[in-house]
Design a protein around this nucleic acid. Sequence first.
DNA 1: TATCCACAGGAAATCAGGGTGT
DNA 2: ACACCCTGATTTCCTGTGGATA
Length: 434
Amino acid sequence: MTNNNEYKSFNIDQFYKKYLKGPIIFKNRNALAPSYIPVELPHRDKEIEEIAGKTACALRGDTPPNMLCYGMTGTGKTATIRYVSHKIAQHTKTNVPWWIYINCSIISTPYRILAHIYNTIIGSEKIPPTGLPKDVIFKNLLGLLDYKIKDSICFLVLDEIDMIANGRGGNEILYDLTRLNENLDSCRTSLIGISNKLKFKDSLDPRVISSLGKDHITFPVYNAKELGDILDKRAKIAFNDDVLKEGVISLCAALAAKEHGDARKALQLLRKAGEIAERFQNKNVSREHVNKAQFELERDHTIDYIKGMPLQAQLVLTSIYLLSLYNKNNVIISGDVYEIHSELTNKMPGVRSLTRRRISDYINNLVLAGIITAEKKSMGKYGATKIIKLCDDPSFLGKILESIDKIKEGLNHSPSLIQKNKIRINNNVFRKLN
DNA sequence: TATCCACAGGAAATCAGGGTGT
DNA sequence: ACACCCTGATTTCCTGTGGATA
């Protein structure tokens, strides 16, 4: 926009015209969406059979056992449950069972779980997001279940159940939910927990394990060939004929198989590859599109994650970024991060500085998100620390941080540690590492 | 070999901000 | 207005930890 002669604006009308004239890649792109329920689920026969076996008694009005489903992300746990629920509904004429899905990573507190179940059944937001005592909601819920789901079954599917099991009051709510039936007259409930952490059972109360953990189904990861089959079937629905070039599906499958056989990832890759081909108005989707898709997915995920982080987390990351600028080895220690963070927050009105303990948590979250790595290291006399490294190129990170208004200014901050030329302990760290 | 540094990270308490019914 | 509730973020308190150093 600096030079009026050279500036050429994006012509949106022309773009749409060209788009509509261009090649049509997708027939039904929804078939690659995570929410899509396919007509058949390849390579999940054993799991379908097990779940169908355990839930079949609902057709005759009996109470199915509570159960747990284990498996890594993208192994088809949720898809299988949804699939079975559809099938059950097809085979019932009266008293169709209710299925209430609760994603515990979003609906993550005991109160909200109860409120969500209640509001789903009644079909409105009658229970407010906060304010009422839990036991009041619990009592209301019992009454509602008996009144509205008379003589039928209500399946409560708790997806990512591990998110609440170790939180405050997590065991209590799970215990209450497993014991719902004892307080109900005509309605019956059945709990299905879904977890991708095999070890999560350890954090459960023995009382909960005794009623929830008896029946469990483990979902194995898909291998590359199985992923290929899944993609093949979906691709036939999603793409127009002859759009996919040779080797596209096998590449998606191979890339996803590397990441513990994650079918969701494989489908995402295929979809993104298609979208990239579409964007460039190409007639076919090629292996290059898949590689580009892989790159873009990772990049998009990082950008979205960082932009969505709370301000304090962004400031912790900014501190790490600033240190990395002055540090060729890309080696940063937690103590320095704490100091820079304090300096940054002192300059920002309305933003308070945090304790070391809290910074430590934020650092751990950044590790979980794959933005940094942190390795615990003892330096003997010089204490212990975490050696932090950025996973991505610092300039890439810099661009993201610069696009966040509140952070922008902080990027000009020159850390006093650097000014005083005293990245004290770092010197010791370098000596050890080199 | 004992000491000791500078932090890690678990558990519980606290606070502020949203809400409720009476 | 009041007593009470729930939640997420944070602090406070605390017990490890591992290897360089005296």
